[in-house]
Measured scan of single mutants.
Amino acid sequence: NKASVVANQLIPINTALTLIMMKAEVVTPMGIPAEEIPKLVGMQVNRAVPLGTTLMPDMVKNYE
């Protein structure tokens, strides 16, 4: 099973992601793959992301 990106803390709306906000975890359903973490740094979330939430592509602005 591949790990996904999971919020390590509450991430407020429009916050630019940093490494300490994210962790890799095997979850179902899968979200953004953990190997994308370096690419996510500096990208903004378009909603508040609660602690423990799996990051999905539609939660990150301009994620492709």
Rank of each mutant, 00 (worst) to 15 (best):
Glu64Gly: 14
Glu35Trp: 04
Val26Leu: 09
Leu51Arg: 11
Val5Glu: 00
Asn62Cys: 15
Leu17His: 00
Asn62Tyr: 10
Met56Tyr: 06
Asn62Arg: 10
Asn14Pro: 02
Lys39His: 08
Ser4Pro: 00
Val27Gly: 05
Pro38Cys: 11
Glu64Asp: 12
Asn62Asp: 04
Pro12Val: 10
Asn1Lys: 08
Asn14Cys: 14
Asp58Thr: 10
Met21Trp: 04
Thr54His: 03
Val26Asp: 15
Ile11Ser: 01
Thr15Trp: 14
Asn8Gly: 08
Asn8Asp: 10
Asn62Gln: 09
Asn1Asp: 15
Asn62Pro: 04
Ser4Asp: 00
Ala34Val: 09
Leu19Gln: 12
Glu25Gly: 09
Ile11Phe: 01
Asn14Tyr: 05
Glu35His: 06
Thr18Glu: 02
Lys23Gln: 03
Met21Phe: 07
Asn46Gln: 12
Gly42Tyr: 13
Val5Cys: 09
Met22Cys: 08
Met30Asp: 15
Gly31Asp: 00
Val26Met: 13
Gln44Glu: 09
Leu40Ser: 01
Pro50Arg: 08
Pro33Ser: 11
Thr53Asp: 06
Met56Leu: 09
Lys23Val: 04
Ile37Thr: 04
Ile37Leu: 09
Leu19Pro: 03
Val60Gln: 01
Asn14Ser: 10
Thr28Cys: 15
Val5Ile: 13
Thr15Ser: 05
Leu10Lys: 11
Asp58Val: 07
Leu19Met: 07
Met59Gln: 07
Met56Arg: 06
Val27Ser: 10
Val49Met: 05
Thr15Tyr: 12
Gln9Trp: 14
Ala48Ser: 06
Ile11Val: 14
Glu36Tyr: 08
Glu25Leu: 09
Glu25Ile: 07
Val49Pro: 01
Pro38Asn: 07
Gln9Ser: 09
Ala48Phe: 06
Val6Gly: 02
Ala24Lys: 05
Leu40Trp: 02
Thr15Val: 10
Ala7Met: 12
Leu17Gln: 00
Ala16Phe: 10
Leu10Ala: 11
Thr18Trp: 05
Lys39Asn: 06
Leu17Ala: 01
Ala24Ser: 08
Ile32Ser: 01
Glu25Thr: 11
Glu36Val: 07
Met43Asn: 04
Gly42Arg: 14
Val45Cys: 08
Val6His: 06
Val49Phe: 02
Met56Gly: 04
Asn8Val: 08
Asn62Glu: 10
Met59Asp: 05
Met30Ser: 06
Leu51Ser: 05
Lys2Ser: 15
Val60Trp: 04
Pro50Phe: 15
Ala34Cys: 15
Asn8Arg: 13
Val60Ala: 01
Ile11Gly: 00
Val60Lys: 01
Asp58Lys: 13
Asn14Thr: 06
Lys23Tyr: 04
Lys23His: 07
Asn62Val: 06
Leu55Phe: 13
Pro33Tyr: 07
Val6Trp: 05
Met56Phe: 06
Pro29Ser: 08
Lys61Val: 09
Gly52Tyr: 05
Gly42Glu: 08
Ile20Trp: 15
Lys61Asn: 05
Pro50Ser: 10
Met59Glu: 12
Leu17Met: 11
Val27Arg: 10
Thr53Val: 15
Pro33His: 06
Asp58Leu: 10
Gly52Glu: 06
Ile37Asp: 00
Arg47Asn: 15
Asn8Glu: 07
Leu51Lys: 09
Val6Tyr: 13
Leu51Glu: 06
Gly42His: 07
Ala16Glu: 04
Asn46Glu: 04
Met30His: 13
Leu19Ile: 03
Met59Tyr: 08
Ile11Tyr: 01
Asp58Tyr: 15
Val41Glu: 05
Val26Ile: 04
Glu64Ala: 14
Ile11Ala: 01
Val49Thr: 07
Pro29Met: 11
Thr53Ala: 11
Gln44Lys: 09
Ser4Thr: 09
Met59Asn: 10
Val45Asp: 01
Thr53Gln: 10
Lys2Gln: 15
Asp58Glu: 09
Ile20Gln: 14
Ala48Thr: 07
Ile13Leu: 11
Arg47Gln: 03
Met43Gln: 06
Gly42Ser: 14
Thr28His: 07
Val26Tyr: 08
Leu51Val: 12
Lys2Trp: 15
Ile20Arg: 15
Ile37His: 02
Ser4Cys: 08
Met59Val: 10
Met59Ile: 10
Met56Gln: 05
Lys2Asn: 15
Tyr63Arg: 02
Leu40Phe: 02
Ala3Ile: 04
Gly31Arg: 03
Ala34Lys: 06
Val60Leu: 04
Pro38Lys: 12
Met22Phe: 14
Ala48Asp: 06
Ser4Glu: 00
Lys2His: 15
Gln9Phe: 14
Ile20Cys: 14
Glu36Ile: 08
Ile13Pro: 08
Gly52Trp: 15
Val26Asn: 04
Glu25Phe: 13
Glu35Phe: 04
Lys39Phe: 09
Asp58Ser: 12
Val45Trp: 00
Ile13Val: 07
Ile11Glu: 00
Pro38Trp: 12
Glu36His: 03
Asn62Ile: 03
Ile32Gln: 01
Val41Trp: 14
Val41Ile: 11
Asn46Gly: 10
Leu17Ser: 00
Arg47Thr: 03
Lys2Ala: 15
Leu51Asn: 08
Asn14Phe: 13
Gly42Asn: 08
Val45Gly: 01
Pro33Asn: 07
Leu51Thr: 12
Lys2Cys: 15
Asn46Ala: 09
Leu55Met: 11
Glu64Leu: 11
Ile37Gly: 05
Asp58Gly: 08
Ile37Asn: 02
Glu64Asn: 09
Ile32Asp: 00
Met56Thr: 11
Arg47Leu: 04
Lys2Arg: 05
Tyr63Ile: 02
Val27Ile: 04
Pro50Asp: 08
Ala16Pro: 11
Val49His: 02
Met43Tyr: 09
Leu17Val: 05
Val41Asp: 07
Val27Pro: 03
Ala16Trp: 10
Leu55Ile: 10
Gly31Pro: 00
Ala7Tyr: 01
Asn14Gly: 10
Ala34His: 14
Pro29Gly: 12
Lys2Pro: 15
Ala48Met: 14
Leu51Gly: 11
Leu40Gly: 01
Gln9Asp: 10
Val49Tyr: 02
Thr15Pro: 01
Arg47Val: 05
Thr28Arg: 02
Val49Asp: 01
Met30Gln: 06
Met21Arg: 12
Thr54Asp: 00
Ala3Arg: 03
Lys39Tyr: 06
Ile32Pro: 00
Leu10Asn: 06
Met30Leu: 09
Gly52Asp: 11
Asn62Ser: 14
Met56His: 07
Gly42Phe: 11
Val41Asn: 03
Ile13Trp: 11
Lys61Asp: 09
Thr15Ile: 05
Val5Asn: 01
Ser4Leu: 01
Val27Lys: 04
Glu25Val: 13
Met43Ser: 07
Gly42Ile: 01
Gly52Arg: 12
Val41Tyr: 15
Val41His: 08
Leu51Ala: 05
Ala16Asn: 03
Val5His: 00
Ala3Trp: 03
Asn8Gln: 06
Met56Glu: 06
Ala48Trp: 12
Val49Ile: 13
Lys2Met: 15
Asn46Arg: 13
Leu40Met: 07
Ser4Arg: 02
Ile11Met: 06
Ala34Asn: 05
Met21Ser: 03
